[in-house]
Each structure stands twice: as structure tokens, then as C-alpha cells.
């Protein structure tokens, strides 16, 4: 297990990092007889976007769901570990969540979807703020439409506005742009990077280019049970120009590590080593 060590300074020479927005210590998660991760440590730097990469099935989404408090309970699931937000334990109420599917409720208008959190908590929704956020994501003209009327990219924009409406310090995103076409994805990466500035964000993605473009820090989750490798802090600030030789080399390096991890997983499956139980 390679826990995330106290961060190495970014090569761009930025100011020393703030204390972690989210810390996870000794986290373990098992489903039935499969150990997804064991004794895992993780730090998400405050007000930075951390991108979590890894081969499919390694447990990226499980880790994100763990932080979101969505691992659930049951005889088949074993969960342990300490989760801290800004140095204090617990409080999942710090988190906003954006999934791969937009999860817009089809019977509510776009504006009502953005205000869903208030409705679920029995609070008076702030329509003006919701409308302002829809304007920021470019959907003000569609505030009264049902989600079925929107394109995939517009729906994910609405979901982003709903996430921002929650106004939580920590934002967890599980491959939110993976179902979109390349151009829309590119636009949304930019929008998310701008609108989530100042929030502690964890973005689970399978796309190294996406991570390199908008992440302050990249983490690789590999193995079974999954471990976090030494973090990668790409040079410069997001939104990076991916054309530089330095980033191309980083991308090649990440691809190499992901390919090796996948091959390792396959050979484990073939030899029956599989996930530890």
C-alpha cells in the first residue's frame, strides 16, 4: 500500500499546499468475498481538483462512493476507515455528487432539478441563485424545459448546475463527461474547471487526457486490493494545453502504467490469484 505521501510540491513552483480538504485513513471496503481496497490512505488537497485514474473494475467508483457515504450497509459489505473533511471526522454533508448519468428527474423542469437538494431537505429554494447558475452553464433559456428536451451535453450542464447549487466544499464526480461526444466533453471540462475552482474536487475518470487537462493532481488506483500510487502533479495550471512535449510524455507514462496494471489484473484472473479475500 502506497498511501498518498504529504504532497510533493508541484513542479510549477506554486505556493505550499493548504491542509487536505479530504483525508482518508486506513480505509477498507469488501463486497462479499472481494476486497476492493484495504488499509488505503488518500488525501485530496483543498480547493484543488484531484483526478483518480485506473483500469476499469479496480474500484475507482467504489472509492468515490465511499467518500460520498454511499457504500451502504449489509451483511455482504464490510467498510472501515477514518474519513475527515478539513481535519474533522465524518460529516458527509460536506459533499456534492455528480454521477456519470445526469440523474435529472424527468418530471421536473431544469430549474426545479437544480433546486432538488433544497426540496429534499425541506428548505426554501433560492430560485434566483438557481437561475444564476443556469445562466453560468448557459441554460437560462431552457430553465422551464423538461430534461427530455435537452441534449446529452445540456443535461450534464444542468447536472453540474445542480451540483454547484448544493454549494458544498467537496465535489465528487464519477466519470461525468464519459458519455459525451469529444467536443461537448471538451467544453464541459472547461466549464467544470472554471466553476469548480476553489472547491476540493475528486474526479474519477478513465481518460488520462481529461485528467491531465483539468486536474491539479492525478492519482492512479491499481491492483487488487487497490492501492494508490505516488501522485502525479502535472506542470502548470488547468486548463492545460495538451500539445506540450512534457504533457505528452506524462500521458505516455500514465498509459504505460495503466496498461501494466490491466495486464497484471488479467494475469491475476488467469492464474486465479484474483482479488485477495
Amino acid at each position: 500500500m502506497t498511501g498518498v505521501s504529504p504532497s510533493s510540491p508541484a513542479s510549477s513552483g506554486e505556493t505550499p499546499e493548504k491542509p487536505p480538504g479530504v483525508s482518508l485513513r486506513g480505509a477498507s471496503l469488501s463486497y462479499a468475498d472481494t476486497r476492493v481496497f484495504h488499509d488505503l490512505n488518500l488525501d485530496l488537497p483543498a480547493e484543488r481538483m484531484t483526478c483518480l485514474l485506473g483500469p476499469s473494475g479496480v474500484g475507482k467508483s467504489s472509492l468515490l462512493r465511499y467518500i460520498a457515504g454511499l457504500t451502504g450497509a449489509g451483511s455482504e459489505i464490510a467498510v472501515s476507515g477514518r474519513l475527515m473533511f478539513g481535519g474533522r471526522e465524518g460529516a458527509v454533508s460536506n459533499v456534492a455528487y455528480l454521477a456519470q448519468q445526469d440523474l435529472l428527474l424527468p418530471w421536473l423542469s431544469v430549474l426545479d432539478n437544480v433546486m432538488l437538494g433544497s426540496r429534499l431537505r425541506g428548505e426554501q429554494p433560492d430560485r434566483q441563485r438557481a437561475f444564476g447558475l443556469l445562466t453560468q452553464v448557459g441554460l437560462d433559456a431552457h430553465h422551464g424545459d423538461l430534461p427530455a428536451k435537452l441534449s446529452g451535453g445540456m443535461r450534464q450542464r444542468a447536472a453540474l448546475a445542480r451540483t454547484l447549487m448544493e454549494d458544498r466544499p467537496v465535489v465528487l464526480m464519477d466519470e461525468p463527461f464519459s458519455a459525451l461526444d469529444a467536443i461537448t466533453r471538451f467544453e464541459l471540462q472547461e466549464l467544470a474547471s472554471e466553476l469548480l475552482a476553489g472547491k476540493t474536487t475528486l474526479l474519477v475518470t478513465h481518460d488520462p487526457l481529461e485528467a491531465l487537462r483539468i486536474g491539479h493532481r492525478l492519482l492512479l488506483l491499481t491492483g487488487a486490493p487497490a492501492l494508490i500510487e505516488t501522485p502525479i502533479d502535472p506542470p502548470g495550471d488547468p486548463l492545460r494545453d495538451l500539445g506540450t512535449p512534457e504533457l505528452a510524455a506524462l500521458q505516455a507514462n500514465i498509459m504505460e502504467r495503466l496498461t501494466a496494471a490491466r495486464q497484471q489484473a488479467r494475469s491475476n484472473t488467469a492464474t486465479g490469484a484474483g482479488p485477495q479475500t
Binding site: 457515504g69 455528487y97 454521477a99 432538488l116 437538494g117 429534499l120 431537505r121
Partner: peptide, 10 residues
């Protein structure tokens, strides 16, 4: 339901 849970819905 996950979304509702994270949003703190009763």
C-alpha cells in the same frame, strides 16, 4: 436515491 442521500434528503 444515491443523489437524494448525498443531498441529505429525508
Amino acid at each position: 436515491l444515491d443523489l437524494a442521500q448525498v443531498m441529505g434528503g429525508s
